[in-house]
Amino acid sequence: MSYNIDIFLNNKLISCDTIVPFIMSLQKIDGSIKANYYMIDYRGFSDIKNNQFLYYSLKKTGELILIGSTGNHSKLKKIYLKLKTLLFLLKLFLKLFLGKTKIFHFGALSYKPYNILTLFFSKIIFRFEASSWISHKNGKIFDNLLNQRNLVVQENYYVNKYKVYFNSSFIKEKGKKNSILMISPRTYRTWYEHVIQFGVPKCKSFLKDINYTYEKGYFVYIMGHIGHLEGMEDANKSLELLIPKTLKLLSTYSEGLPILVKPHSVTNMDILHKIIEKHNFNNVYITYLHTAVLSVNAKLVVSNYFSNTQADAYFFGATTVEFTHYSKLALKKLKGKSINPNYIDYFINNDENKFKSIIQKSLSSKNKNKVRNIYEDFEQSSKVRSFYKNYII
């Protein structure tokens, strides 16, 4: 007997990063499991396809399907899209009614029109937490400094019967009833072996193409939003000032090793290209490989504010650095620490000499990166097997 899972991703890559390793693990337990990944937003759909290794990994487990559309439309087009959505819902309703699928989602089924499905099929619909990494109280503290995040409409979690969490603090907040606590899929051995087997060769090939040797190592610089960010010393300028400063320090003290810049889907590439061209960095290269892949042999991985991709780097054993310039108020509220100190080895606030010393220390170290806290998801006692037995079959 085969099992089908329909997955509604949210509009951020993080949900895809969380669920693909989880599906990969379930399929290792039962090869008959089939998955479809649905994206309502075209930009999110495009972001996944542009993330080379993540999309490659998704394609090994299922199909990515766009059920939304692109941009603004005429009145007639909007009517067509509404009819298309209605037809999709009817087909999905029939699949659920016949017991031919289960649904994993990250919030889409908490809202109209999809929440109608939770009224009839709550026992086979699972609401997943988007980030599988352990959160820290500093994250909420920093969020409160970001005025724009206060405008987000709060989701009604309680329309979902089953809720899958990776943070025990969320269970305390949302309630224990029908809550399922799992280990981060991004720490599963299945995912680790997939990254080593299929990701590392892609990284080696990329470095060979730019005339560098993988075995000698490299530096990774994770990019995010470039522009206004509350909590920085200068909310309007700090990030744009930090980028050339970070690149200059890396380029100057890298001893000729390449600096691989990993943009996010929200990164303003025009600004990034202008900065690189203006300062004429000759060993700086942009890559769209997954952070997990890049971290396997990175000397260090740096970002200018905490990114969840730093947790990937930390898991794969890379030295993680948050080199930033937060305001005095932000530092006071964060108690002089990272937004998420769980995954940052060195937190550096506006101290170039300290960052320089960390770069030099990483070069002098002969130790290879060692994976941290891997989870044996295929063992008989694993939580993944329990989930499979209790909720899939």
Rank of each mutant, 00 (worst) to 15 (best):
N167D: 14
T320H: 05
K383S: 11
Y388E: 04
E230H: 15
S169P: 08
E277A: 08
N138F: 01
D143W: 06
Y285M: 04
H290I: 08
N308E: 11
T187G: 09
G317M: 01
F166D: 02
D30I: 04
L96V: 09
Y192F: 14
F104M: 04
K332G: 15
Y38C: 01
I171A: 06
K49G: 00
R127E: 10
K389L: 14
S135C: 09
Y80C: 09
K383G: 14
F198V: 01
Y314I: 07
I374E: 03
N11C: 09
G336L: 01
K78M: 12
I183D: 14
K49N: 00
P258W: 07
Y158E: 11
S382R: 00
P244W: 11
V296D: 12
F53L: 05
F378M: 15
G227I: 02
K102R: 15
K75P: 07
F323I: 05
I243A: 05
H264R: 10
D30T: 00
F166I: 00
Y375G: 01
G107E: 07
L94R: 13
L334H: 10
F97I: 07
Q148A: 08
S132P: 07
E193L: 10
K245A: 14
L109A: 11
K204P: 06
L109I: 07
S110N: 14
S238G: 13
M39A: 12
T190F: 01
T118P: 11
G31L: 06
F97H: 14
L334D: 12
K337C: 13
V296R: 10
I359H: 13
Y346N: 02
P185D: 03
Y157F: 13
S327C: 00
N178K: 02
L247T: 00
